[in-house]
Write a protein that binds this DNA or RNA. Structure first.
Lengths: 148, 148
DNA sequence: GTGGATGCAAACTCTTTGCACCTTG
DNA sequence: CAAGGTGCAAAGAGTTTGCATCCAC
């Protein structure tokens, strides 16, 4: 095989940034974090490395509807995410109540699924009064108007 | 209020394109469809109209992880979608087994959720041999490697 | 020394915006 | 006729790619 995958400072820094993060990171956040280790790190390198790591199965893209992709370490087992509409942070959820096969029409083969919860994280839930209250960070929030 | 919302040929065509479609459409597909009615329709108008219609609650964005947004009529009640990895088509699902509140950590408030199923639609399931088989259309498929 | 890796800038895709002109009410 | 709507082109944001240089092995 032509598996050459060299060890470089930039890749180490990118890998470290992702594993040290408590939540999935986006390309620019990764650049910020890894850039503190490697002077002059370029965004293109981050994108290239991210793609390689995804193909190598080292990391997984976390794509939340309406959000730009984030990345997290692979190998954590099946789980989903929670996006806080207050602070915009993404949290990992444990477990999955997953029996969704029945939702698909007859003849369809369900191979995979994606589930994301939206709402207020513990911190944001405290300070909220049900109305769209005070915001601390830039939220990137979308109006998912599911009417259950 | 300054609610003026005029009735124009372009808006009628865009609305019609969305309601006539069997599946959610993306901006370019809408341009194609509506453009057949209105000569010279521009993409910018489609985007502007889409945004207005979403704000007016007429349509809903359907944002599937890793896919560009599609739009469907609002008011269909709560439902989710199925993306066929074979042909790339999106199907509407009925119902929702939704009790996801328990998945979130204590203190979190779950306000909404998103669920998407991936797999093979009825047509594609027939022609598939379990291996990544022959493809008919351009799939836009992503490797969601959830390991259940 | 060689081939993979990197940084920069240009290229691309998708979406938004500015502006002059056209249309609805 | 005035306010809004439209088309085109330019501007943005996010991501990819070409290329000369650099560095790990």
């Amino acid at each position: 095989m032509s598996e050459t995958a060299r060890k470089t400072r930039q890749r180490d820094a990118i890998r470290a940034a992702i594993s040290d993060a408590k939540a999935p990171l986006g390309p620019k956040e990764i650049l910020d974090a890894a850039g503190r280790e490697v002077e002059g790190l370029g965004l293109a390198t981050v994108y290239r490395t991210l793609k390689l790591m995804v193909e190598a199965g080292e990391i997984m893209p976390v794509e939340i509807a309406g959000e730009s992709p984030r990345y997290e370490l692979a190998g954590k087992g099946h789980h989903h995410h929670f996006l806080c509409k207050g602070c915009g942070k993404v949290f990992e959820l444990e477990g999955c109540c997953g029996h969704f096969e029945g939702l698909a029409p007859r003849g369809f083969r369900v191979e995979d699924h994606d589930l994301t919860l939206f709402g207020q994280c513990a911190s944001c839930a405290k300070g909220t009064r049900s109305t769209t209250g005070a915001r601390t960070t830039k939220p990137h929030v979308h109006k998912h108007a599911h009417n259950h």
